[in-house]
Amino acid sequence: MSTEELLALIRTGIADVTGRPAPALDIDTGIEALGLDSLQTLELVSWAEERLAIRVPDEELATVRSIGDLTGALSARLPGEPR
């Protein structure tokens, strides 16, 4: 899965979690700048994990601050992807 595809998936997830259309984003976008609090971030990660059938370790979740952190944490767990 390319970074672009992951970003598109995350945008869908943000819209799902917040109930608002997601703004444009790239890997440098801060999670907080998107108006997500820590619980919504957790909901977003769980949402993405479910779609991708993967699980990010909890201690890594605690340090997710940007969209890039999130795509990094997710893609590192996708099978057959270079890290």
Partner: peptide, 9 residues
């Protein structure tokens, strides 16, 4: 552990 179920979160 971080909760994954929306209701629990």
């Amino acid at each position: 552990r971080a909760p994954r179920l929306a209701a629990d979160i």
